[in-house]
């Protein structure tokens, strides 16, 4: 499925619109949020599309509109202006939104806070059951989803989700979304609060889904994660699309990102700092390994006369 944002703006209600809405009838009719002088725009004229099969990263500093943008993707929040289209059909139509909601799996920040059922099985089954699937199909999907997130079905299915560790709880919450077998996975800071190893494991899992053909949209504060995993990155600032492109394009200019409160991925930031000090480092975009190679090359004299250890 292709999700398209067509000139989307979204505003939280300002005080004057609220007053109008509570006022007389004809005033209330005019109380469009966007028209209020004190409207606060969370998104402003956002146009882009999530292409099938891509791994789209959403970057932006705190308050830039990342979470609001993601909530538009399955019709949870509707644009104040503009529209969101799923394969050309507007999510403003109820039946479209209902259809899209089962195809766009939205995983919120700290999804484990939304666990509620008495057992792991019931929690993961909640989505599929609400889709009106039969119990056999529900059971199949729950087992498969738990397997996909690397949790042992037999051992955990009857346990309370609240007796699990934080990392496991997050996997259960994630399984609940996977069990709906979505086309598009939308993740808001999926690795926040996990320890480094669980973090890598969790992101590896997301990358695996992408490799298997799923479309993934991931908002993150970690430029390192975005650089290493995404095929395209959208940078938001003050609710507007500030930059969009492949990681090597987006991360080619540190100053441009710094202007909107973002940093470069660690290797790129370090490379830039070294160049500023006059270190003879070649241009380019590096992973950690590539950066180490490039620094070693720069420090190895062409004639090899200085007695430094050779490149391995």
């Amino acid at each position: 499925m292709r999700l398209e944002f067509d000139d989307v703006s979204y505003s939280y209600e300002g005080k004057s619109a609220e007053k109008k809405r509570k006022g007389k009838k004809e005033q209330a009719a005019k109380a469009q949020w966007g028209n209020a002088p004190d409207a606060r725009w969370a998104l402003r004229h956002v146009s882009f599309a999530v292409e099938p099969g891509e791994f789209l990263g959403i970057a932006g500093h705190t308050g830039s509109g990342k979470s609001t943008l993601l909530q538009h993707m399955n019709g949870l929040v509707h644009p104040t202006e503009g529209q969101v289209l799923a394969d050309g059909a507007s999510l403003a139509r109820k039946e479209v939104a209902a259809e899209v909601r089962s195809q766009v799996g939205l995983v919120f920040q700290y999804p484990e806070n939304q666990l509620f059922a008495a057992t792991v099985f019931d929690d993961v089954a909640f989505g599929p059951r609400n889709m009106g699937l039969g119990e056999d199909e529900v059971a199949r999907r729950v087992e498969e989803a738990l397997g996909q997130v690397g949790l042992p079905f037999e051992q955990l299915k009857d346990r309370s989700p609240f007796s699990l560790s934080g990392g496991q709880q997050r996997r259960v919450a994630f399984a609940g979304v996977l069990a709906m077998e979505p086309d598009i996975l939308v993740l808001d800071e999926p690795a926040a609060g996990l320890d480094p190893r669980s973090r890598e494991d969790f992101l590896d899992m997301v990358s695996r889904f992408h490799a298997q053909g799923a479309t993934v949209v991931m908002a993150s504060h970690s430029m390192d994660d975005l650089a290493a995993r995404c095929t395209r990155i959208l940078v938001l600032s003050e609710g507007e699309v500030y930059l969009s492109g492949a990681p090597c394009e987006v991360f080619s200019d540190g100053e441009r990102l710094k202007a909107v409160g973002l940093g470069l991925p660690s290797p790129a930031a370090f490379a830039e700092a070294l160049r500023k000090e006059g270190f003879p480092l070649e241009e380019g975009f590096f992973s950690e390994e590539q950066l180490a190679d490039a620094i070693a090359r720069a420090l190895t004299p062409a004639a090899g006369g200085k007695g430094e250890a050779p490149l391995s």
Binding site: A273, L274, G278, E289, A292, A296, A309, P310, L311, S312
Partner: peptide, 29 residues
């Protein structure tokens, strides 16, 4: 990065901050 560099024969101590490593590398260079 310090450890990766040492594997590649670059003689730097293991630094814990970017600034420290940057200084070491600039001195080497």
């Amino acid at each position: 990065l310090s450890l990766l560099l040492r594997q590649r024969g670059v003689n730097v101590p293991v630094c814990i901050t970017d600034d420290a490593l940057k200084e070491e590398l600039c001195a080497l260079s």
